[in-house]
Nucleic acid binder design. Structure first.
Lengths: 108, 108
DNA sequence: TTTCACTATCTTGTTTTACAAGGTATAGGA
DNA sequence: TCCTATACCTTGTAAAACAAGATAGTGAAA
């Protein structure tokens, strides 16, 4: 069991939350997740995820010049994306509750 | 994003916790997870997981007769299994902290 | 001036996960 | 006798997360 495996499906929601807070681009999202305490999330994970979420209509993107390198692709949430984020939060809270219930009940 | 995807890698740890609490068999673990608030976890998920964990030396099993059906396969944790459980708990707590940090910081 | 480090995106191929669906078999009750 | 609940397992599928590496722009040091 790696940290990796526990991440599945959760990064999506966290990306939505970050984008909702403020228009953001992939490279920065990876850094931010690191700041929040996640194991370094690889770009090979983030970019395909962002592209999938765009395909699904949860986010839109615009390219903008950077002062320090190639163009950035800034993402924003659509109405569907905001909805998906709200649903993610509910599911996360339910999951948190369930796992903690198992750990608490079984660990004493 | 389905509930499913958020589960990845977490069921393992919960099964270890359940087994640690008390010797248990697969069919019952599925029921218990349901009781703890998880979406019904399919047997197609649980049995392969248990077999993998046995292959990895985290659990051992013994067959015992049941009063109400075919033989049950009771699982117990090995020393390695207890170790894996302890590691899971740490990783879970770290994950919980990180996700909540993202949600809190970005949602205000 | 060329080379290095950092910034930034994307692709390919692999491993693993979770599951749906279905198979097998035992026991007890209607 | 047949149904339901109990109990285990297998096969095939879709998707997730990543490692590794390709591509390219910028600026600063050497």
């Amino acid at each position: 069991m790696s940290q990796t495996q526990m991440m599945k499906g959760i990064i999506d929601g966290c990306l939505l939350a970050i984008i909702d807070g403020n228009e953001c681009y992939g490279y920065e999202m990876a850094e931010r997740l690191g700041d929040y305490g996640f194991d370094a999330v690889s770009e090979g994970t983030i970019y395909p995820l962002l592209m999938r979420m765009q395909r699904e209509g949860l986010v839109t993107s615009v390219r903008r010049a950077s002062t320090a390198g190639p163009q950035r692709k800034y993402y924003s949430l659509t109405k569907e994306g905001k909805q998906a984020l709200a649903e993610f939060i509910l599911r996360w809270q339910q999951l948190e509750k369930s796992v903690n219930a198992v750990l608490k009940k079984e660990m004493e």
